[in-house]
């Protein structure tokens, strides 16, 4: 078997997600190549070459792949996919955007958000917001898969794969990049943070999310939110944890003023330790929390911060 992994980039650098995808690939077995595509991505390619288990890094460095727009990325993957039995990417917004195009153009199905590998053709993936886990078997000659990174521990970085340039350049006159507004934050990225503290509707308004800042600073945590908090306009959608937002599985997840709708639980219930702070002692979040504290978050948060 021969597997191609599409590397995830974050601001031109190799994103942490890729090491998890390579781990999923190792569970399938076979030769592993990583494709790094973008503009000015040599550093990312060198970082990918260090991932354990990777035999070869293929680099498509060209302005047409800048920002990894779906149309040229899909076309590039179609050009490169022949000879591979599997093509994997993380279930990031890039992987989700690009991989279905490859699948459709190769006339194969795609398996999204895979969390476990049973064999080279059989995989587990959550459905219904993670309220059921399906085991699916693909009969397609080419398996196109996005991987939920929380399902696989990252591989190490003691490898030394060869790096080679890919000279495929595709045309793209249909889509162009206009601008990007990335949340500027010194905090760890939500998907990869060891500690996540999230606020829900109980926070009352966006201003009150500042109460989480000091705690996040002390714990080195990322800050998340429930969909209810996003819908209420308290915080931007990129902070959303849940079925339709980010899926996280940190060592410690602190849910503040979050009732625990099934769609939110879908995004965080694989966390190692869950703490819930809520004034309603009947809130469903307490059914999944290892430690629950019933009370007024506006009193608890400052006290918690000062005692950390």
């Amino acid at each position: 078997m021969s597997i191609l992994v599409l590397a995830d980039l974050h601001e031109g650098q190799l994103a942490g997600a890729t090491a998890h995808v390579v781990a999923a690939t190792q569970a399938i077995g076979g030769d592993i190549d990583v494709l790094v595509a973008g503009e000015g991505v040599q550093a990312a390619a060198e970082a990918a070459a260090k991932l354990d288990g990777v035999s070869k890094v293929r680099v498509a460095d060209n302005p047409v792949y800048a920002h990894q727009l779906a149309e040229p990325m899909g076309a590039l993957l179609v050009e490169l996919a022949d000879g591979y039995t599997h093509v994997l990417a993380s279930a990031s917004t890039t992987g989700k955007n690009v991989l279905p195009r490859l699948a459709a153009l190769k006339d194969v199905s795609q398996l999204s958000d895979v969390i476990a590998v049973d064999s080279a053709d059989t995989f587990k993936r959550p459905i219904y917001a993670g309220n059921a886990i399906s085991t699916v078997k693909s009969d397609d000659a080419l398996k196109v898969i996005t991987v939920r990174t929380t399902g696989f521990d990252a591989v190490g970085t003691s490898g030394s794969a060869t790096v080679e340039a890919v000279d495929v350049v595709v045309e793209n006159s249909q889509s162009s990049f206009v601008k990007e507004e990335l949340a500027a934050s010194d905090r760890p990225e939500l998907g990869g943070a060891k500690v996540v503290i999230s606020g829900g509707r109980g926070m009352g308004n966006g201003e009150n999310f500042k109460l989480l800042d000091g705690i996040a600073d002390k714990l080195g945590a990322a800050i998340g939110a429930s969909r209810a908090a996003v819908d209420a306009g308290f915080v931007p959608n990129d902070m959303q944890v849940g079925q339709t937002g980010k899926i996280v599985a940190p060592d410690l997840y602190i849910a503040v003023g979050i009732s625990g709708a099934i769609q939110h639980l879908a995004g965080m219930k694989d966390s190692k330790v869950i703490v819930a702070i809520n004034k309603d002692d009947e809130a469903p979040i307490f059914q999944v929390a290892d430690y629950g504290l019933v009370g007024d978050l506006f009193e608890i948060l400052p006290e918690f911060e000062s005692k950390l």
Binding site: V108, S109, L111, T122, P126, I127, G130, N131, A132, I133, S134, T135, V136, K137, S138, D139, D140, K269, I274, V275, D281, F286, Q287, V288, A289, D290, Y291, G292, L293, V294, I300, E303, F304, K307, L308
Partner: peptide, 27 residues
């Protein structure tokens, strides 16, 4: 369909833990 559904299971249930009485106990 090209993908066969082998089986569908409920996810591992997460057991609820304990309620703590104070911030000190939580920490």
């Amino acid at each position: 369909s090209r993908v066969s559904l082998v089986k569908v299971e409920s996810p591992a249930e997460r057991k609820g833990g304990v309620k703590v009485a104070s911030v000190d106990e939580l920490i």
